[in-house]
Amino acid sequence: MAFSTVSEGFEALTAHHEVIFPPRGRDFTQEEIAERIGDCDVLCSVFDIPIGRDLIDKGRSLKLIANYAVGYNNIDVAYAASKGIVVTNTPRAVIEPTADLALALLLSCTRRIAEWDRLFRHDGANVERGRLCRLGVNLYGKTLGVLGFGNIGAAVARRCQAFGMDVLYNKRTRLSEVEEKALGVTFAKKDDLIRQADVVTLHTPLTPETRHLIGATELAAMKPTAILINTARGAVVDEQALVQALQEKRIAAAGLDVFENNDVPSPELFTMDNVSLTPHVGTQTYDSRVDMVHELCDNVLGFLQGDRPISRVN
């Protein structure tokens, strides 16, 4: 069973298994999933459709939930595990496009691209652009702090190093000295990273431990010139605390692709010139959508046939 996405990439799956696709151009509704899931061995879910206990219970033959995303907070993973159901995700396909977007948001913040674009569209050739008007900042020589140094965090670090930035990182398990030297990165405790970084970029999954990883205390510790980038999950940041910090200019700017309340931004964020916003589109490229299909199908085939590794999350 699959949800609507690009059509390319499912050939390997349909060649060997019966696949139930939704009507062209839309996803299955919750009711349609409930009607069809009973005899399915595999449910191919997608990041913005919840797969909770009620649906899982209707999957009498369900053995695998293959999620079309790197995040899986749309799935009750613990309950699935209690029923003996494996859950997989697609971590590889999302690395490069998400890192690209994080860098794009950072450049928008440092060079005030979104702000200039709005003004230029409104005022045209008359836009105010004096020599000291709306000055941006350079990335060269600044310090990037990466919270969550997995594949995406490391990809963002590589991009920022190309701009001449130094990189601090924090993750639960520190890299070896050899790895740090090879990557050109320096480990820092979370509090030290937050205090020292000119840019803090977030790349952690959303778990009970990472919810509000950045809150009022952390925002108060950041430099007043610092920029926060979040392409991870919205609730990793206490959004109301962030709004207040931005309003009071206690940090300089934020680039946000994800938001705490079901990805609906706080209204105040729309009014701020020091915020660049995108609507959770970190993987929104054709290439990544096709790559995600291939990775999802590899997970399904690897699980059913046992002939390749799969990306288990439980």
Rank of each mutant, 00 (worst) to 15 (best):
Asp291Gln: 14
Ala232Cys: 10
Ile229Gly: 02
His280Gly: 02
Thr271Glu: 15
Asp287Ile: 04
Pro279Trp: 07
Asn230Pro: 02
Asn274Leu: 12
His280Thr: 00
Gln247Ala: 12
Met272Gly: 01
Ala226Arg: 04
Arg289Ser: 00
Val293Tyr: 11
Gly255Gln: 11
Leu228Pro: 06
Asp238Ala: 11
Ser266Asn: 14
Asn262Tyr: 12
Asn262Ala: 15
Gln284Asp: 12
Asp273Tyr: 00
Asn261Tyr: 14
Leu269Val: 05
Glu268Leu: 04
Ala253Asp: 03
Thr278Trp: 08
Ser276Tyr: 10
Val243Asp: 01
Val236Cys: 08
Gly255Leu: 11
Ala235Asp: 11
Gly255Thr: 04
Leu269Gly: 10
Val293Met: 04
Leu269Asn: 06
Glu268Asp: 15
Thr225His: 06
Thr271Cys: 01
Asp287Val: 05
Val290His: 02
Arg233Cys: 06
Asn262Val: 01
Ser288Gly: 01
Arg233Phe: 13
Val243Ile: 09
Pro279Ala: 10
Thr225Val: 04
Glu268Pro: 07
Asn230Ile: 06
Arg289Lys: 15
Asn261Thr: 01
Arg233Tyr: 13
Leu269Gln: 08
Ala254Gly: 08
Asp257Tyr: 13
Gly255Ala: 00
Gln284Ser: 15
Asp273Gln: 09
Val237Met: 11
Thr278Phe: 12
Thr225Arg: 02
Gln240Asn: 12
Pro279Leu: 07
Val290Leu: 14
Asp287Thr: 11
Asp291Tyr: 11
Asp257Glu: 08
Leu256Asn: 04
Met272Asp: 01
Ala245Phe: 13
Asn299Met: 13
Asn261Ala: 11
Leu277Met: 14
Asn261Asp: 15
Glu239Lys: 08
Arg289Phe: 13
Val264Trp: 04
Leu228Ala: 05
Ser276Val: 12
Thr271Lys: 15
Thr231Ala: 09
